[in-house]
């Protein structure tokens, strides 16, 4: 799966007399994710992560750019091709309760996508559902309803539902953030097992850097709709290049008693309606210098690393 120059602009009302303004939720995002790999998007609230997820799934149309799945433009798909795409790319959401129908049993929830996509014979559904549930570590729950389960169990059911149609790509938008730490770790173990045994490609969205470091092969750091740094996970965490990546890493709490460092950054994330000139990060950047407020740095570098910063790329 690939995003190329992906853009999404919303038109939002500026209040009673303000008319409309363009909000650039996603502003030129590029990345690729291959089978058997996890690509993670990290960044602070509102930077556009969920919008990217919705675009990848063709749940909303882009203002510009493309999403490619196995080489074809996702937004040009029709008929059987579109149906095959809908099967092949699945999503897991943050809130496992809101995304399950409370009036359907686990069996109904898991067999429905098989029915829609005409996978296998109806008589094979019960066995298939049982297998799926076993994959996510649940047994004897087919006739029960969502409210009978804990958050972690519901998230397992959502994962099983995504797996029901044998997808190739799973987009997971903050799948752990509503869960307790011990349950998070159980689900995280499950995701890693799935990655290792199924060859799935994952796009994993999170603001938890510990989880991202643990799980990802490649990482894209987003700030105000743009990817400001993209790198193999190990390199990103060992030697961040973009000042924003450095700040994020320094701010994330670690399990090291007494490491009381100073928060490296002041101020808030600016509103995407009030985008700074030049580099979007320059008003908060500890390393800001002359060109930053004038020229927007491009995401450049030798693959697989790329950074959008004048410190690293001659402008």
């Amino acid at each position: 799966m690939e995003a190329r120059g992906l853009q999404k602009t919303y038109s939002v009302s500026r209040g009673v007399f303000g008319g409309h303004a363009a909000l650039r939720a996603v502003d030129g995002v590029d990345f690729k994710v291959a089978a058997n790999h996890v690509f993670s998007l990290v960044g602070e609230s509102g930077c556009g992560k969920s919008t990217v997820a919705r675009l990848l799934l063709r749940l909303t149309n882009p203002t510009g750019g493309q999403v490619l799945h196995k080489g074809s433009d996702v937004f040009a798909l029709k008929g059987d091709d579109l149906k095959a795409f809908r099967r092949s790319v699945q999503i897991i959401f943050q809130d496992p309760f809101a995304s399950l129908n409370p009036r359907r049993t686990v069996y109904e929830t898991l067999s429905e996508p098989m029915k829609i996509h005409g996978l296998a014979d109806k008589s094979a559904f019960p066995d298939r559902v049982r297998d799926l549930l076993k994959t996510v570590g649940m047994v004897d729950v087919m006739d029960r309803y969502p409210h009978e389960f804990s958050g972690g169990q519901r998230q397992r059911i959502c994962i099983a539902r995504a797996l029901a149609v044998s997808p190739e790509v799973i987009v997971a938008d903050e799948p752990l953030s509503s869960l307790d730490v011990s349950i998070q770790a159980q689900i995280l173990n499950l995701l890693i097992e799935l990655k290792e045994t199924t060859g799935l490609a994952f796009v994993f969205i999170s603001h938890d850097l510990r989880v991202v470091r643990y799980l990802s092969d490649f990482v894209g750091v987003m700030y105000l709709g743009k990817i400001v740094e993209r790198a193999p996970a190990v390199e990103l965490f060992d030697s961040p290049l973009h000042p924003y990546t450095e700040v994020l890493l320094a701010a994330a709490p670690e399990l090291v008693p007494g490491r009381k460092k100073e928060p490296p950054l002041q101020g808030e994330v600016p509103s995407p309606l009030d985008m700074p000139s030049g580099c979007p990060f320059h008003p908060r950047c500890p390393k800001v210098f002359e060109p930053c407020s004038r020229i927007t740095p491009e995401l450049r570098g030798d693959a697989p690393r790329a950074v959008a910063c004048h410190l690293h790329n001659a402008y």
Binding site: V181, Q184, R210, R213
Partner: peptide, 21 residues
């Protein structure tokens, strides 16, 4: 178990508490 639930080193399997509260 709580400490074992926090992702640390890549490649080391997490050892969370099993079951739920």
């Amino acid at each position: 178990g709580l400490l074992g639930s926090v992702p640390a080193q890549r490649g080391t399997k997490l050892k969370p508490v099993r079951g739920m509260v």
